[in-house]
């Protein structure tokens, strides 16, 4: 029982990290038809900026430092993403190959720059004591997992509120269906593009900081590694669907944890790819997406 509880919570927490990255990717693809391979770079840059800024904070306890890191990570992720949209992606709308090349290039360049500046080795983080401890819920559950799940759940609620209850959310939902018609109603869809990029970057930045707490370290390559699974989550969940991303992230996280534990290590990752293939064959639009 305790093993299952631990695997469930850990799988949910891993899924929560995937969701934080995938939700932005999904909205960006759904609205703008941009495959943003630079999304992992938002994660990486935000995590480094966050923990360096927190470490430089002259006063305050560990919690203040951590909360400051969260704020910096979210802010840096959002600004980096918005700049990426305005400077690199916007000139290449309708040029999909160009978009892929520029976002892949940015991802590679960012990883190389971070590696050059801070080294390839993982950096140990100073975290609040509670975050390095455990809470007993059928098993000793690492508190960082609980925090990650709670944060992702909050982001899901906020994103759904944004999409369902605000005018910009309405524009994004409409734009996911038919961007040209949104423009034909007199709406500057370009602004929605920048906003969606920024929101995606903020979520990825939060994921970068929470992943630091989850693993206890940050490194230049984790963003890229997690991006692969986030893309799988986006496709399984349905392109453009935030709820779909949340459900798919939970499925992928749990599948990975259980199979990697009960079967051979790596089986979970393989099973996720098989699941992706099955979904693509049986339901090409994903669990919550349209068939197109």
């Amino acid at each position: 029982m305790s093993t299952i509880a631990l695997l469930v919570i850990t799988g949910l927490a891993l899924g929560a990290l995937y969701f934080l990255i995938a939700s932005g990717l999904s909205l960006i693809w759904g609205l703008m038809r941009v495959l943003n391979f630079a999304h992992g770079a938002f994660f990486t840059v935000a995590s480094y900026c966050a923990f360096i800024a927190a470490a430089a904070l002259p006063a305050g306890g560990p919690w203040l430092h951590f909360l400051f890191a969260v704020a910096v990570g979210v802010g840096v992720g959002g600004v980096f993403a918005a700049l990426t949209e305005v400077v690199l992606v916007r000139p290449l709308y309708e040029r999909h190959v160009g978009q892929v090349l520029v976002t892949v290039g940015l991802a590679l360049a960012t990883t190389a720059l971070v590696q050059g500046g801070f080294g390839a080795d993982p950096r140990q983080l100073e975290l609040p004591v509670w975050l390095t401890g455990t809470t007993t819920i059928f098993a000793a559950i690492p508190n960082s997992r609980l925090l990650t799940i709670a944060a992702a759940a909050l982001v899901l609620v906020l994103l759904r509120f944004f999409l369902q209850r605000t005018r910009y959310g309405l524009i994004v939902r409409a734009g996911v269906e038919n961007r040209a018609m949104v423009s034909a109603l007199g709406i500057d869809v370009q602004r929605a593009f920048t906003l969606v990029f920024a929101i995606g970057g903020m979520a990825a930045g939060l994921a970068g900081v929470l992943a630091g707490a989850y693993y206890g370290t940050i490194d230049p390559f984790r963003g890229t590694a997690m991006l692969l699974f986030a893309f799988i989550v986006v496709v399984i969940g349905g392109l453009g669907s935030v709820t779909g991303s949340a459900v798919a992230a939970v499925i992928v996280g749990l599948l990975q944890q259980f199979l990697n534990f009960y079967a051979a290590a790596g089986t979970g990752d393989f099973a996720v790819v098989v699941l992706l293939a099955v979904v693509l064959l049986r339901r090409p639009g994903g669990l919550f997406g349209s068939a197109t």
């Binding site: 309405l170 939902r173 409409a174 996911v176 269906e177 038919n178 040209a180 018609m181 423009s183 034909a184 109603l185 007199g186 709406i187 500057d188 869809v189």
Partner: peptide, 22 residues
């Protein structure tokens, strides 16, 4: 396009183009 529309041009497309999920 959006500025053309804001100048006072309404558009009803051939395929209606309602937002099906809204």
């Amino acid at each position: 396009v959006h500025e053309v529309v804001r100048r006072g041009v309404g558009y009803v497309p051939e395929d209606r183009d309602v937002f099906a999920g809204l």
